[in-house]
Write a protein that binds this DNA or RNA. Structure first.
Lengths: 197, 197
DNA sequence: CCTACCGATCGGTAGG
DNA sequence: CCTACCGATCGGTAGG
């Protein structure tokens, strides 16, 4: 038994989370079994419980990590300048970068929200509203400063956010556009939407 | 037993499909049991098998009906005029109307694609590509005719589609905007995206 | 349209 | 980290 030669590094919690992310994105949370996740890191399902408390825990960790990442990126983008046009442009670029680079997190974050326990779900929903509000505030300020011209702040904000989220659905690495190219072009598109192009 | 007074009309297949749609949208396909669906139409789970062949069948019916609806609406919109600007505008309006009026179908259509059997999934994916192509062709023609000015046909098309899909996530009846108001405003936003505003 | 039930699956625990 | 296993759930069928 001790002679089996399979290269096998010690299982780390981060590997388990990464495997769970891929499986949740591919098959869905409910359809993914602890055995599936174990297989991806070369152990049996029950062995995972030495590293994680539950399957639910894995989902919570994935979602919390990604909302914190995108909120941090957003704050950095907005804090990088005082010009509301540049703020919105950079916020959109950060939004798109996140949704291209973290496609699976974005997927799982929206599609599996309902499988979060009640408390975790409410906390996540609140964080997501914070994020949306960040964009709405920028659009509002741009309008107030006479820089943007929009039909409806709310609809324009949703449009900007939703088109960026869409990137996570169709983006594939190594195709026509790089992440940065897409980010810049979506920045341009957002400027058009707010009438500042 | 025969004296129980509960108002109960005969169970129709359409009622079952409608109940399944609501449950699939709310809890997800896998988390919805045949007993859940039965309860919604006042029968036990096993009784449903007199009307439907399987739970999978319900999902297929929901998805096929909605893709056919949106494709039909799209063809009517595009066929209503020869002006490519008006064609795109009306196509966007139809797209948005569908995603506002058929929120749940839109939800289930994208979120539960992976729970379709292999064959049904491939057929659905093909229909969805047809739909996308309809928009891409309009954007291309507008550019060729010198009416639109875009950075990338592909990214602009995705943006237009994705922001419309987003309506199904946040739209609620009886709030700030009616379905038609949203449709018109999204038509305006699409015109801005293609540089024809 | 119902009850009883089969067969399979799965999260998590016991106890090494 | 593993095997054995519990308890619960669920789609679908049998047979009225």
């Amino acid at each position: 038994m001790s002679t089996a030669g399979l290269a096998r590094t010690r299982v780390r919690r981060a590997d388990i989370v990464a495997a769970a992310l891929e499986l949740f994105a591919d098959k869905g949370y409910l359809a993914t079994t602890m055995d599936d996740i174990g297989r991806a890191v070369n152990v049996r399902g029950p062995s995972l419980y030495k590293h994680v408390a539950s399957k639910q825990d894995l989902l919570v960790e994935i979602m919390e990590t990604s909302i914190e990442t995108v909120l941090r990126d957003h704050r950095v983008a907005v804090g990088s300048t005082d010009d509301v046009g540049d703020q919105l442009r950079r916020a959109v670029e950060a939004h798109v970068r996140f949704h291209a680079r973290h496609r699976l997190e974005a997927f799982v974050g929206t599609r599996e929200l309902r499988h979060l326990s009640e408390g975790a779900r409410a906390a996540m929903a609140a964080r997501r509203r914070d994020y949306e509000r960040g964009f709405r505030v920028l659009v509002e300020r741009g309008v107030a400063e006479g820089r943007f011209r929009v039909g409806s702040v709310r609809l324009t904000t949703y449009s900007i956010l939703d088109m960026g989220v869409g990137v996570s659905v169709w983006f594939r690495d190594g195709e026509e556009f790089s992440v940065d190219e897409i980010a810049y072009r979506y920045g341009d598109l957002a400027m058009r939407l707010v009438g500042a192009a």
